[in-house]
Design a protein around this nucleic acid. Structure first.
Length: 592
RNA sequence: GAUUCCGUAGCUCAGCCGGUAGAGCAAUACACUUUUAAUGUAUGGGUCCUGGGUUCGAAUCCCAGCGGGAUCACCA
């Protein structure tokens, strides 16, 4: 098969070529690639053809199901080209992996005209260009499966050089693209050159799909609820605030979807779940991104004991499905997701790790104990908060293997049902893994009168100075008044779960585009603005190169300094043009 | 938000007791028909993050800013 290269629009682009290399902020390599682009067009090759390319195989398929002499058509980026005179080897990277291609001058150009090989392949193609190839499979003397290419078509030129990362036979990586800022800002580059990054994101989708299958198999319904909410409910956190113009009201990006899912249980669904993108206007670090994903699921006629079993089964299923094992490597540790997980009440956890029994203790006694182990205490802190502090300081970090902590104090859980056997506690569990909270679940509070009272306690906390206490959602209370069956709900932080299952210490590694401070873009320097001041064109370009990208910058500088800088540039670059006079500079600035 | 480290060629990094800016890979040119981190020879490539200050002289020392990482605080 031979692919047509010619394109009738080519002439149109050639006349534009001068402008495409005019850009003064390009590096030498970028200019060379743009020149190659123009040369391609001049020889009638369209570097960005419109037509589909009829791919028949992927690199991975070719490697795994090798058949000597099989005719294949592949497409991808050409990387690591090795020219050996009349033969060239390169690696073709597609979405599945890579395969070597062998380009031979006589096979690529069977006639008299060898220019396609000699000019295009050897000189106009660059690292990272997209090409399509067809040819027969063979194995080289070195034992490498390769495509003996009979036809090559340029599919898209790459104008910026990618970082060159090489891997040797032992798997050692050379010159890896490691700068975190560059990797996160330009994830597209990261994905191209760092193989492992792609794997993480494929696993992430696998984890979400496995969860979805598990919930669907149980007969529960995936739903969508509002991201834009009039009251940010269901959690304690600072929201992002926005404004709806037509309604002229403030709106909030959701911090949780809990209250909406419970409304759906009121409406008669037995089980609903949602992968909810939540937004919290708080700090950012290795484990926090302003937007993050939480799976929340609510199931009618169940309690938190049932939900613990369900959560365990679900996680075990996900591990087997996605990783093929319940033993998960995380750094030096191995996490065991084989159920049953350890279960421990909050009270017992504190007894075990802090040596203190919180049963029946007053706020004063708890505060005194906190002080005794070095926790700072203030009068904003109620009993619940004090207990939480003790747990956070002494217990949390100890639970490396998946562990359910149950029965939290009532003050910490305003949406959770009171414990059936102890009114100071709630029917709640959190799943701790690697010393961090991963999931949180309740027997949901469905008594509307008690729910109203709990919201009012939150208001009192606000008055004590807690700026994150919950708002009262009157519509949610009205829904409960119509009656909600006993229900258990569970939320699990997807990003953090993915971190654990993909052995990543940073949330930025499991989000394609982690939040970053916006990049600053300098506007492209334009010599025309200087020419407009009466500055000769040749000096206008030198001005930009010598560090005066804008008229403002030029006017900030002293004429003598400009004069010296420009003549210095002329001398350094041995430009054949007359030296500049101070008088000229003064004229440019209108000071003559 | 606090502390701390970092910012030099397309990539990875050296240079930092102040004195003309360096290496490897990549690029460009030539040689080479089974290479594979290809090789050999030659060549080009820099606003040393930005702005001030000290100095005869600053990538280097000082101050401020910008961007990022790590730790802590808050949180999931």
């Amino acid at each position: 098969m031979k692919f047509p290269q010619k394109n009738s629009f080519t002439d149109y682009y050639i006349c534009r070529s001068f402008f495409s290399i005019m850009n003064l902020s390009l590096s030498e390599e970028e200019i060379i690639r743009r020149q190659a682009l123009d040369k391609m067009r001049q020889s009638g090759i369209d570097p960005f053809p419109a037509a589909l390319f009829p791919v028949t195989h992927y690199a991975k398929e070719v490697q795994e199901k090798y058949e000597e002499g099989k005719e294949v058509v592949l497409a991808g980026r050409m990387m690591n080209t090795r020219v050996m005179g009349k033969a060239t080897f390169a690696d073709l990277h597609d979405s599945s992996g890579k395969v070597q291609i062998y380009l031979n001058v006589d096979q690529l150009c069977p006639g008299e005209d060898k220019s396609f090989y000699n000019d295009v392949v050897k000189h106009l193609l660059h690292y990272g260009d997209f090409v399509g190839v067809s040819g027969k499979l063979f194995t080289t003397r070195m034992g490498e499966i390769s495509v003996n290419v009979t036809s090559l078509k340029i599919l898209a030129k790459s104008l910026k050089p990618l970082p060159v990362v090489k891997t040797d036979k032992e798997g050692n990586i050379y010159d890896a693209f490691t700068d975190p800022e560059g990797r996160y800002r330009m994830r597209y580059v990261d994905l191209v050159v760092n193989e492992k990054v792609k794997e993480t994101f494929i696993l992430r989708t696998g984890i979400v799909n496995a969860m979805r299958h598990f919930f669907n198999a149980a007969g529960y319904l995936e739903v969508d609820t509002p991201v834009l909410q009039p009251i940010p409910g269901g959690a304690t956190a600072r929201p992002f605030i926005t404004h709806h113009n037509a309604l002229d009201v403030p709106m909030y990006l959701r911090i949780a979807n809990e209250l909406y899912l419970k409304r759906l249980i009121v409406g008669g669904f037995d089980g609903v779940y949602e992968f909810s993108r939540n937004f919290r206007n708080e700090g950012m670090d290795r484990t926090h991104n302003p937007e993050f994903t939480v799976l929340e699921i609510y199931v009618a006629y169940k309690d938190y004991q049932w939900m613990m079993d369900f959560t365990e089964k679900m996680l075990e299923h996900v591990c087997r499905e996605v990783l093929g094992s319940t033993q998960v490597k995380f750094g030096e540790k191995t996490l065991n997701f084989q159920r049953p997980f350890r279960r421990l009440s909050m009270t017992d956890a504190i007894k075990e790790y802090a040596g203190f029994d919180i049963t029946g203790k007053s706020e004063e006694e708890l505060a005194a104990f906190c002080k005794s182990i070095g926790i700072e205490v203030n009068n904003m802190m109620g009993k619940g908060k004090l207990i939480d502090e003790i747990f956070g300081a002494r217990c949390e970090g100890n639970f490396i293997q998946p562990t359910f902590i149950t029965d939290y104090p009532v003050e910490m859980s305003p949406l959770c049902k009171r414990h059936r056997s102890n009114p100071d506690l709630t029917e709640r569990f959190e799943l701790m893994i690697n010393g961090k909270e991963v999931a949180n679940a309740y027997s949901e509070l469905n008594d509307p009168i008690e729910q109203r009272a709990r919201f009012e306690e939150q208001l009192q906390l606000q008055e004590r100075g807690d700026d994150e206490a919950m708002f009262i959602d009157h519509d949610f209370l009205r829904a409960l008044e119509y009656g909600m069956p006993p229900t258990s709900g569970m939320g699990i932080g997807i990003d953090r779960l993915v971190m654990l299952l993909t052995n990543n210490e940073s949330i930025q590694e499991v989000l394609f585009f982690p939040q970053m401070r916006p990049e600053k873009w300098q506007s492209e320097p334009d010599p025309k603005v200087f020419i407009a001041l009466g500055i000769p064109e040749q000096w206008a370009e030198i001005l930009i190169k010598a560090g005066f990208p804008t008229v403002e910058k030029l006017k900030e500088a002293k004429p003598t300094s400009i004069h010296q800088t420009l003549n210095g540039y002329r001398k350094k670059n041995k430009l054949e043009m007359p030296a500049l006079q101070l008088n000229d500079v003064q004229q440019w600035l209108g000071e003559a």
